[in-house]
Computed example of a mutant assay.
Amino acid sequence: MTRRNSAPKERFEAIEILLLWEGRVSRSRLLDLFNIHETLASRDIAGFRAEYPDACEPDSGSKSYVGSWSLRPTLTRGTFDEYQRLIGAIGSLDAVSAGVAVESIQVDATSIRHPLFAQIHRAMRLGRCIRVLYRSMSNPEAHERVIRPHSLIQTGPRWHIRAYCSKAEAFCDLNLGRISAVSASEDAVLPGLDRDVDWHRIVAVRLVPHRDLSAEQARMVREEYMGGTAATVFNVRAPIAKYLIQSFRAAIDPERERAPEHLLMVYQPEELPAVADIRRL
């Protein structure tokens, strides 16, 4: 992510957002986000602590400050989209300069509270296991799972975490919006990122015009999506492929998924690994 210039007010808001959603803030984290000198980053944190002394406390084990139990949104609304904008996961229309009116239908459908996310973020950062209350389409009642999360996945309006799950006895993707409680699981020992073979596997997803399109329609689609070439190819992690295919509404089974509802289709989907199957979403 490109560091950006900022005003003091924006950096104070960023400090609060980081404390809420990541559970901690440090000089180095501010330097990741903003194009400022380290002296100014230290001054910002000191100024924030002076203004809001109950918001955070020093972490003796690192050069950072952790959110206190009494931390509440004061400068911000405490919503997940604020965190997304801060880390650059979604753009802001305020930064768009098109010379004409611009509107966007980009929305966020992830409903999760910052205390839960902060615990998940900490577990990923430290490589630890946690217990979560989770709901799924196959089991919509809240049930406990012990997981070891390692990565965040943004999939359009939703967010997932990639984790090893003791219940599934495998690595899988869990919808952040379906987690209702998080607690530590210090005694659990589960595989981590280095054991997630599918995550480290890069696959090529090749999208082509749907075979039902006329020659003229196919040429238009190639110009729109592929710069006039025969196909567009994305090299992505194997578990990410299904989300990419879904975002383009590309047909996996062109006999059943017909045009014009589907303008694109996946070329030779049978060559993709099972973890990339969109029907497993």
Rank of each mutant, 00 (worst) to 15 (best):
Tyr83Cys: 06
Ile17Met: 04
Gly67Asp: 07
Glu51Ala: 15
Arg27His: 11
Ala46His: 10
Ile17Ala: 00
Phe80Thr: 00
Ile45Gly: 11
Pro53His: 06
Gly78Pro: 05
Leu33Met: 05
Leu31Asn: 11
Gly47Trp: 07
Glu16His: 02
Asp59Gln: 10
Arg29Leu: 06
Tyr83Met: 03
Leu75Glu: 12
Ala41Pro: 07
Glu16Asp: 05
His37Cys: 10
Ala46Gln: 14
Asn35Lys: 15
Ala50Trp: 07
Ser68Ala: 15
Cys56Asn: 01
Gly78His: 06
Ala41Lys: 08
Ala46Gly: 15
Gly78Arg: 05
Glu57Gly: 13
Leu71His: 06
Ile15Pro: 02
Val66Phe: 12
Ile15Glu: 03
Gly61Pro: 03
Asn35Thr: 14
Ser26Ile: 03
Trp21Leu: 00
Ser62Asp: 14
Glu51Asn: 12
Trp69Tyr: 14
Ser28Asn: 10
Thr76Tyr: 13
Thr74Ala: 14
Thr79Trp: 07
Glu22Met: 01
Pro58His: 07
Arg72Glu: 15
Leu71Val: 01
Pro53Val: 06
Tyr52Val: 05
Asp32Asn: 13
Asp44Glu: 15
Asp54Trp: 00
Thr39His: 08
Arg27Val: 15
Arg77Thr: 09
Leu40Cys: 09
Pro53Met: 05
Ser64Phe: 04
Asp54Gln: 11
Phe34Lys: 07
Val66Trp: 06
Asp44Leu: 06
Gln84Arg: 12
Gly67Ile: 02
Leu19Pro: 04
Thr39Trp: 09
Ser62Lys: 13
Asp32Arg: 09
Pro58Asp: 06
Ser70Ala: 14
Ala50Ser: 15
Arg27Leu: 09
Lys63Glu: 10
Leu19Arg: 02
Asp59Ile: 06
Gln84Ile: 05
Lys63Trp: 09
Pro73Ser: 04
Arg29Asp: 13
Asp81Trp: 08
Leu31Val: 12
Ala14Phe: 01
Phe80Glu: 00
Glu57Thr: 13
Pro58Met: 07
Ile15Thr: 11
Cys56Gln: 03
Asp81Thr: 10
Pro73Asn: 02
Tyr65Gln: 05
Val25Pro: 12
Phe34Tyr: 15
Phe80Ser: 01
Glu22Gly: 01
Leu18Phe: 03
Leu19Glu: 04
Ser64Ile: 05
